[in-house]
Design a protein around this nucleic acid. Structure first.
Lengths: 112, 112
DNA sequence: CAATCATATTCGTCTATCCAAATAAGTGTA
DNA sequence: TACACTTATTTGGATAGACGAATATGATTG
């Protein structure tokens, strides 16, 4: 033991956030939120290479954010917990509000 | 222009998530959720060095997640948008549920 | 048991991030 | 202006993450 347990929790929480810290993985989650899909379909939609998609899916799988199921030769991925999408939507709203505020400020400066 | 604008949005969203991908920054946000604080106080609570706290606060500031206000020699930081905390709470719940599920599985295996 | 299709992993390389230490910059006061 | 105090930034070195290319694994079919 080296640190209060509180930090351990934040560390695990940071690992989940880290999984969200990549645009490709965010896209993957949103795509899966619309329904289960296999690796090939996901790659085609994202225009990303197969190894890239597979590696990103592994990151999400290891953190329990998606689940995989073999169906013959293909593997179907599903969103494991919809609250991840809720969190992403919240953060997206924060981001868009920031952008709006920033552009409003720019407009104000341009007027002056 | 090189990619559909959709990707641009995910990129910005990923930048916000990236800001959450560090246990120290998560702690900072939770601390600020309880009320505005200056850099020294935050560092003392986190037992982190002053440059470390300042650097992390800069990351959060650049993404509009906290705001800074000078008060004499000190600088008071505040949480800019409470929805970031809501998102963190959601992700924390996802994480704890994953842990519970995992330990339940371990128990089952131990019984057998 | 080949051959094929879908997915996963490894390897090499590049870039990004983190921390500690040192230094700089801004503010209030003698 | 000099000094003390608080916060910010820079630098260097170590670690982790991302991608493409090549290769490996797993499942189905003939």
């Amino acid at each position: 033991m080296q640190k209060p347990q509180k930090l351990e929790i934040q560390l695990l929480q940071a690992e989940i956030c880290q999984a969200l810290a990549d645009p490709t993985r965010i896209m993957l989650l949103y795509l899966l939120a619309a329904g289960a899909k296999n690796v090939g379909d996901l790659g085609a939609t994202l225009e990303a290479s197969q190894p890239t998609v597979s590696r990103h899916l592994k990151v999400l799988r290891e953190r329990g954010m998606v689940t995989a199921e073999r169906l013959g030769t293909t593997v179907n991925y599903s969103l494991a917990d919809r609250r991840v999408i809720e969190a992403l939507d919240l953060l997206r709203a924060v981001m868009t509000d920031n952008l709006l505020q920033k552009t409003a400020l720019v407009d104000l400066l341009n007027q002056a």
